[in-house]
């Protein structure tokens, strides 16, 4: 499941729905990203996506993760629009027979989402608005996966 959501969401509800009724799954790993407040930083974020293109691009990477890590299922829920500090931005859920594959697939998907998924993030802080681009660390994290 891949969803872009324009309003705040409750990650525990998505986690519950994702884990319900599983019989083949031995491990679900979740990653929840929150809008972080810097000491002198942004008070609000604005996330922009390219409708349909963004979902299709994430879908392609989820398919790669499925085959590479033998996933049984995966979900990516990503906020768009204005996001306040402390609100969830992204929830990644991976389900596999065993924990190692679920951990690695979740890590892989987040590295992709940080640097290579079609989102554009603007921070509105005390120094004015600023477009966020991937950091060297984000790019080296993504390069780990080849």
């Amino acid at each position: 499941m891949i969803q872009l959501r324009p309003t705040p969401f409750d990650p525990s509800a998505d986690m519950g729905a994702f884990s319900a009724g599983r019989t083949q799954v031995g491990a679900i790993v979740s990653f929840l990203g929150l809008a972080r407040g810097e000491a002198a930083g942004a008070e609000i974020l604005q996330l922009e996506a390219y409708a349909d293109f963004t979902e299709a691009a994430i879908g392609g990477v989820v398919e790669r993760a499925r085959s590479r890590f033998s996933l049984l299922d995966a979900a990516v829920i990503h906020r768009v629009g204005k996001i306040a500090v402390g609100e969830p931005i992204v929830l990644v859920l991976t389900a596999a027979a065993h924990r190692r594959e679920a951990f690695e697939a979740c890590d892989f998907l987040m590295d992709y989402l940080k640097s290579d998924a079609p989102f554009w993030k603007k921070e509105f802080g005390p120094d004015g608005p600023r477009w966020v681009e991937p950091t060297p660390r984000d790019l080296s994290d993504l390069a780990r996966w080849g």
Partner: peptide, 25 residues
């Protein structure tokens, strides 16, 4: 809605999007 490299022919009604460096999560 397909990434292209270099030049390409455009069909009438084409949708062309320009995408700067991306950052999600």
């Amino acid at each position: 809605k397909t990434l292209v490299r270099g030049d390409i022919a455009l069909k009438p009604g084409a949708e062309v999007a320009f995408l700067p460096p991306m950052s999600g999560g």
